[in-house]
């Protein structure tokens, strides 16, 4: 399995960050960055990283299942993450999430058949003072209202 030259360069650099023989340290970053390029943590990806870091596929699998941002199935082109944790909940996060469900016609961790949007009700994403907050892929949007959400989503159709 090969990656883009940019990602290969990033991996090459990453592997220099750790003490000799401890390159396994790169596993979580490699999974995150590769997932962005591949679209999901596929069995091929797990096998490839296992080989590169000299660990077993099971050891990779153990890690993948632990972290909530790593996913084995592809998500929509835009992954809509709406925080409903306390700070966001106090300022309408839950209502925003319900609105998104209706608007997108999908629920938690579901992806539209078209593959355009997927939705996830997420735990605190660290934007509590500017709640309710959402992330569209990696981009934060603060103080999101239902109208603002509609605008954002429509712009991405």
């Amino acid at each position: 399995m090969t990656f883009s030259p940019e990602l290969e360069a990033r991996f090459a650099d990453l592997l220099t960050h750790y003490p000799p023989g401890r390159q396994r340290g790169a596993l979580v970053p490699m999974l995150m960055y590769a997932q962005d390029e591949v679209g999901a943590v596929t069995p091929e990806l797990m096998a490839e990283l296992a080989k590169r870091l000299d660990v077993s596929v099971l050891q990779v699998d153990e890690v993948v299942g632990y972290y909530s941002m790593l996913h084995k199935k592809p998500q929509g082109k835009t992954h809509v993450q709406i925080c409903t944790n306390v700070a966001c909940m106090l300022r309408g996060g839950a209502e925003l999430y319900d609105h998104a469900c209706k608007k997108l016609g999908i629920g938690h961790k579901q992806t539209q058949a078209s593959g355009v949007f997927s939705l996830e009700e997420v735990e605190c994403i660290g934007a509590c003072s500017w709640a309710p907050a959402i992330q569209l892929n990696y981009t934060f949007h603060h103080e999101v209202t239902t109208d603002k959400l509609d605008q954002l989503l429509e712009g991405l159709q």
Partner: peptide
């Protein structure tokens, strides 16, 4: 001194 970033992947 060398300093690097290291990403997490979603775990409180």
């Amino acid at each position: 001194f060398d300093l690097y970033s290291q990403t997490g992947a979603g775990a409180y």
